[in-house]
């Protein structure tokens, strides 16, 4: 029966909650960075790319292995970035050249990456790295520095994305996701655009995986599991909050910034859940509920304004007045 009791202790210390906030924010920023990558496929290309669960781990594994080999952390993350790019390209080619539906292409890549990631880590499921022995770009040991690094990386990435999606190529990529027929009529090779978008997206996700592995001090074969759901949570929470606070005044860079905010808020919710001493095995259930709620909100709002039930009610009103 004990296992059914979720809340094991009732006395909760606010001090402990406040203490765990900065670390939660730092991890939230890293998930937010990952979500920036996901945003490219999910919102701009209109593809739900499931390869990210694998590429996040790939990024972590590559980074840790190269750090252990004595590499500079930024150089290691650059290689992680390229590894993610290759994985994204594979998904893209499976989809465009072999005609496999995008969601299945992502699943196939993710599935294959499980073996690849194990191979990268020398066929062990977990590879630890100590910040005492190796230089790292970010670590939970020094949270203020981690926050600074996280914010700086996010800012650079947002600036880079703002620039890229404003260029001729980036603009063509957005058009491809928005209206493929029109894009072809304008001479855009939509297959190339899709592959490129998936490659860039997975590169960013792998880069974020590298950050996360350093932050937590290890790479784990399961560290990317659920990345797509967490990323979606960050994107959607960021969009809802950005829209509520700034609405139409939000430009592209603003939207991207709010995705980082979304990542932070998502992770702070997790911190609160953990603080409440809820069984952490149930985290995934909570995450799924959070994502489902945020995905449903815009839909339900729309539905409240424009539903058959409302139409039905309106239609009987005049008779009631009589």
């Amino acid at each position: 029966m004990n296992s059914l009791i979720l809340i094991s202790r009732l006395e909760l210390s606010f001090g402990a909650l406040l203490n765990s906030m900065p670390s939660g924010i730092a991890q939230g920023i890293i998930w937010g960075i990952m979500a920036l990558g996901l945003y490219i496929t999910f919102r701009l290309l209109d593809v739900a790319d499931l390869s990210v669960d694998g590429t996040f781990t790939t990024g972590g594994a590559v980074t840790v292995m190269l750090l252990l080999a004595g590499w500079n952390p930024w150089a290691a993350m650059l290689v992680a970035f390229l590894a993610g790019m290759i994985a994204g390209t594979v998904t893209g080619l499976l989809h465009t050249k072999l005609g496999i539906p995008s969601i299945l292409s992502g699943i196939l890549t993710q599935f294959a990456l499980y073996s690849v990631n194990l191979a990268i880590m020398g066929f062990t499921a977990n590879k630890a790295i100590s910040v005492d022995k190796y230089t790292m770009a970010i670590s939970s040991r020094s949270i203020p520095a981690a926050l600074m690094t996280g914010i700086a990386v996010a800012a650079v990435l947002i600036a880079a994305m703002y620039w890229f999606f404003g260029t001729e190529i980036g603009s063509s990529m957005r058009a491809t996701g928005c209206n493929p027929e029109m894009s072809k009529a304008q001479g855009i090779n939509i297959d190339v655009m899709k592959v490129m978008g998936l490659a860039i997206s997975n590169a960013i996700v792998a880069f974020a995986g590298g950050l996360m592995a350093q932050y937590q001090g290890f790479a784990d074969i399961n560290m990317g599991r659920g990345a797509i759901v967490i990323g979606l949570a960050a994107v959607i929470i960021g969009e809802v909050i950005g829209d509520a606070l700034l609405g139409k005044h939000l430009n592209f860079a603003g939207k991207l910034s709010f995705i980082i905010v979304g990542g932070i808020i998502y992770y702070l919710v997790i911190v609160v859940v953990l603080w409440l001493k809820l069984n952490s095995n149930l985290l995934r259930l909570f995450t799924a509920i959070i994502v489902a709620v945020f995905l449903a909100v815009p839909n339900l709002q729309q539905h409240a304004k424009n539903s058959f039930r409302k139409a039905g009610k309106n239609s009987v009103k005049p008779q009631e007045v009589k």
């Binding site: 404003g166 260029t167 190529i169």
Partner: peptide
């Protein structure tokens, strides 16, 4: 309009 104006031209990393 900018997308259409570049129909048949090489798309680069210049501003759209």
């Amino acid at each position: 309009l900018a997308l259409a104006a570049r129909r048949g031209k090489k798309r680069t990393l210049r501003w759209h």
